[in-house]
Nucleic acid binder design. Structure first.
Lengths: 160, 160
DNA sequence: CTTGACCTTCCCATAATGGGAAGGAGCATA
DNA sequence: TATGCTCCTTCCCATTATGGGAAGGTCAAG
């Protein structure tokens, strides 16, 4: 099977298949005399595994670990589980961060007239959150900072 | 004020201040004869605006729009609100995707013994989701695909 | 004048993916 | 057989936002 067919069968683009090979995530397949890559069903299986794991949000490096565990017939399921659980925690952390942002913005948007007038609590908050009403969500990367947040007073919409 | 002081005052690293200037997000400040950048309080104010917007998850390009609206004293608050609302939608889309991943993985992890035995429904699912029990979350980027998903049967834990 | 802290520009790296060029290979049809 | 279309190869570049670090100039204090 050529790379194009393997791509269709695995739902991984040929481009990505070559990339995964280049970083050693998957093993290099044999080549024809014309230097074409030739894939077997097992290769497609592995590619689907990678695809699925990526779809579940695992990083390529995490997929590498999972592949190693998959190939290791004597792995302990506890090892797999811990990789998965850690990833769930990562996901939940990110979810919380995004939710905090969405909450803040939804709140600000709710207090914005959204008409032709220029007064806008959203811009007011961006320009000076301390003087405004919305809590500050921690920044996405790294740990949360300590900033001059303020409680949400539910006012601040300019009289217009 | 030198860039280092502006950085401290705005909580934006000197590196990023230069970067924002290079992409035209903020205006280039005047320079001393020694070619040092000199910032005024308004510049710091703008940097804080950028920082806050970035913390709320707006992309740099979105921040560019917001800055333009901020500077335009005759903007319509509706324009600001629509930028904000669109971003909230983006956030919620991403949140849903991450939640789908977390749900699937949590479920798989729950069915995994997590002991010394090699049998692992998590790996089984990655290797062949159709034969397994977990629903397939849509892939993060681009629109959701149509795949051979299956309902969640709540079994598949190998007898071990 | 030396030292240390600060500034400058420039290059590189990250993560995962896509786009596209230039050229070879394979196959079908006129 | 020659033309042509589709596929393959490698190689380079772009993306997003940020950090690291080198090489060299500047400033202020001692």
């Amino acid at each position: 099977m050529n790379i194009g067919q393997a791509a269709k069968a695995s739902n991984v683009t040929a481009k990505m298949i070559r990339y995964y090979e280049s970083i050693g995530l998957i093993t290099a397949p044999i080549r024809t005399q014309a230097n074409y890559r030739v894939y077997a069903n097992d290769d497609v299986h592995a590619l689907r595994f990678v695809k699925r794991a990526r779809n579940l949000g695992f990083s390529v490096e995490e997929v590498r670990e999972l592949l190693a565990l998959w190939r290791d017939k004597s792995r302990a399921s506890a090892d797999v589980k811990s990789v998965a659980m850690k990833h769930v925690q990562d996901l939940e952390t990110k979810i919380s961060e995004l939710q905090a942002m969405a909450r803040t913005l939804s709140h600000l948007a709710r207090t914005c007239h959204g008409d032709g007038r220029p007064d806008c609590p959203i811009l007011a908050d961006l320009a000076d959150p301390a003087a405004s009403l919305a809590p500050v969500p921690g920044k996405p990367k790294r740990k949360a900072r300590q900033e001059a947040d303020c409680a949400c007073h539910e006012d601040a919409a300019l009289p217009a």
